[in-house]
Design a protein around this nucleic acid. Structure first.
Lengths: 176, 176
DNA sequence: ACTAACATGTAATCTGTTACATGATTGA
DNA sequence: TCAATCATGTAACAGATTACATGTTAGT
């Protein structure tokens, strides 16, 4: 996922590691901070894999900056990952959000709509957190205060997300 | 997190690995599946750490079952982790949900309310996914369809979760 | 004098994914 | 006979966290 985030931000413009960190922090840092120990090795890996180009510039009164930009392979990789996300990237909200943040870079409305549709299909499946006798526990039947809270929040999120997905898919789909 | 989930389910009753897997799947499997390669090593680690006891029972027409139960140290560990969660367990919704699923095992309403309050404090901070000129981008100003969706869903979730947290904290706090 | 922001990295450790590996019972 | 369910594990690899490590400039 960190790799996707790096590809996404660099798709827009070249950035050095520190700037990249600031962008990532803005996107998801309040929820889960980015660590240098994850970021810099990821940059090295991706450079070794031919996804990134680097060139050095003097820093603003600090260490020299390594300015990173996407190679053609890097741009291709981003589009592939957006077009064809792994199942867990569709089901896990945190990961799906990362996808959404950069989905505009997939400049094909039909493919964009297909990704949203995969998420919608997942959300439309009946699902719950808890099961009793094999059947999902409904909000009203859950005796535990905290689990009732989980279900209540999940229900509100689901309702809003499904509504948005339907609208967005309609907006992306050319009228027949 | 897997460790917390294991502690939480075993707090209620002894289970063997396979049953544990079913419970975990019920809780979070639709979002992110549990793999044997994570579960069984976690069980071994926790047993070695003195958190779990094991005893063997014949299986139902399959391999013999390893029935797991919490030791006193295991029960203590669960209560500590619930009472004093790490920052990321408060900020990351997925992890916070895991906490919520077992928070009832912390049988001290004041401590339970304190955990909910930490989450509420986090949600009350102004936060956003995207920044322009250092200021958070508001839903209305976001030009990108997909990012607008993220913000819209996040707003709905936040509203509902804050409302629930306030109610729950009030319910847990004895009238003064 | 100290702290924050700038700027980059490595090493130990932990945790998780994916694939491999085995084997019995039950029902279609 | 074949698939699903039951039941447990290991090994290779990938990825992340935490702590360590260094050094400058600007502001209080």
């Amino acid at each position: 996922m960190l790799e996707l985030t790096i590809l996404g931000f660099l798709y827009e413009q070249p950035l050095h590691g520190y700037e990249l960190k600031e962008r990532i922090t803005g996107l998801s840092g309040h929820v889960r901070p980015v660590s240098d120990g994850a970021l810099y090795p990821a940059i090295s890996r991706m450079t070794a894999a031919g996804l990134l180009d680097q060139h050095t510039e003097p820093g603003a009164g600090a260490a020299p900056r390594r300015v990173l930009s996407l190679t053609d392979a890097g741009r291709d990789r981003l589009r592939e990952r957006l077009r064809d996300p792994k199942p867990v990237e569709v089901t896990d909200s945190t990961r799906f959000n990362t996808l959404l943040a950069f989905l505009r870079h997939l400049d094909d409305p039909t493919a964009q709509a297909a990704v949203l549709q995969r998420r919608l299909d997942f959300l439309l499946q009946p699902a719950s957190f808890f099961y009793a006798d094999g059947r999902p526990v409904r909000l009203e039947d859950e005796p535990d205060l905290f689990r009732r809270g989980m279900l209540r929040v999940a229900r509100a999120t689901g309702t809003e997300e499904k509504a948005w997905l339907k609208e967005a898919i309609a907006a992306l789909t050319p009228a027949t």
